[in-house]
Amino acid sequence: MRQNPSFAMTDVAELRRIIAAHPWATLVGRDESGMTASHYAVLLDPDRDDLTIVAHVGRPDDLVLGLGTQELLVVFQGPHGYISPGWYGDVAAVPTWNYVAVHLSGVPELLDPEENLRVLGHLVDHFEGGLADPRGMWTPPNDEAFVRRLEAGTVGFRLTPTRVTAKRKLSQNKPDDVIENVILELTGDGVYANPALAAEMQRAHDARLAARAATAADR
């Protein structure tokens, strides 16, 4: 992803928030036949406070992705949506697409079977935890033989990124009144209404206004 300094995201807490909120990721790797993109749920490593992630792939995706032998690209897509030029007012403008994306790259560390089981259990508990009657990986009728067979069909990995590219393109290059009108349009009931994108824009706009006010106060 080509970076634009005006749209760069660098705050680790914000990057972790986007990753945590959008765990369905795209994994991009290659083997001798070329590039492959696979799609899996990916979580932040619960034992770390950086951008380290843990996940698994089903065999033979580990081979086609070159898992553990070369760089893997993991893409997290946050809120995104169409922005009409009509929302900018009576000025020359063209349509665009606002979005948030985080790209992590590095050579993954492959997990041994016991740690892979722990990561798989964490993954299940993470998504089942919100249910009234959560069903864990070890909950009957699942037995140990079943769970072990499940683990054997997967390859777990941990990735501490050596390259991070994150972009938040949310109309930051527009005047405040235009940004606020775009947020209003996205919050409404129009054909391109997008509350999640509106909330992300509002969050970024509020942070920018707060930073501007702090700078002015220091002068």
Rank of each mutant, 00 (worst) to 15 (best):
Q3H: 11
Q3A: 14
Q3N: 13
F7T: 12
A8D: 11
L15I: 12
R16Y: 07
R17C: 05
I18C: 04
I19R: 00
I19Y: 02
I19K: 00
I19V: 14
A20S: 13
A20P: 06
A20R: 05
A20V: 06
A21Y: 05
H22Q: 09
W24F: 13
A25N: 02
A25Y: 03
L27C: 10
G29M: 04
D31V: 06
D31R: 03
E32G: 12
E32C: 08
T36F: 14
A37M: 06
A37E: 09
H39C: 12
D45F: 00
R48T: 15
D50R: 04
D50T: 14
L51P: 06
L51T: 05
I53Q: 02
V54Y: 02
V54P: 07
H56E: 01
H56P: 01
G58V: 08
R59S: 12
R59H: 13
R59E: 15
P60E: 11
L65D: 02
G66Q: 01
G66K: 01
L67I: 05
T69P: 08
T69G: 08
T69H: 09
V74Y: 00
V75M: 02
F76H: 04
G78N: 11
P79A: 10
H80G: 15
H80N: 14
H80Q: 15
G81N: 05
I83F: 09
S84Q: 02
S84Y: 06
P85Q: 04
G86I: 12
G86Q: 10
Y88T: 07
G89R: 02
G89K: 01
A93D: 06
P95T: 09
P95S: 10
T96P: 01
T96I: 01
V100D: 04
H103V: 02
L104V: 03
G106K: 00
P108E: 03
E109C: 08
P113V: 12
N116R: 09
V119E: 05
L120F: 12
L120G: 12
L120V: 15
V124T: 15
V124Q: 04
D125I: 06
H126M: 12
H126A: 15
F127N: 11
L131S: 12
A132H: 13
D133R: 07
P134S: 07
R135Q: 14
G136V: 11
G136K: 07
W138T: 15
T139H: 09
N142P: 10
N142E: 10
F146M: 11
R148M: 07
L150Q: 15
G156C: 09
R158T: 07
R158I: 05
T160M: 03
T160H: 03
P161H: 06
T162R: 01
R163V: 14
V164Q: 03
L170H: 02
S171C: 11
Q172I: 10
Q172T: 14
N173E: 14
K174T: 10
D176G: 15
V178M: 00
N181V: 10
I183K: 00
I183D: 00
T187P: 05
D189W: 10
V191I: 15
Y192G: 07
Y192F: 13
P195E: 03
P195F: 01
A196M: 06
L197F: 08
M201L: 12
R203D: 13
D206K: 05
R208W: 15
R208G: 04
R208T: 15
L209E: 12
A211P: 08
A214K: 07
T215D: 07
A217Y: 05
A217E: 14
R219N: 14
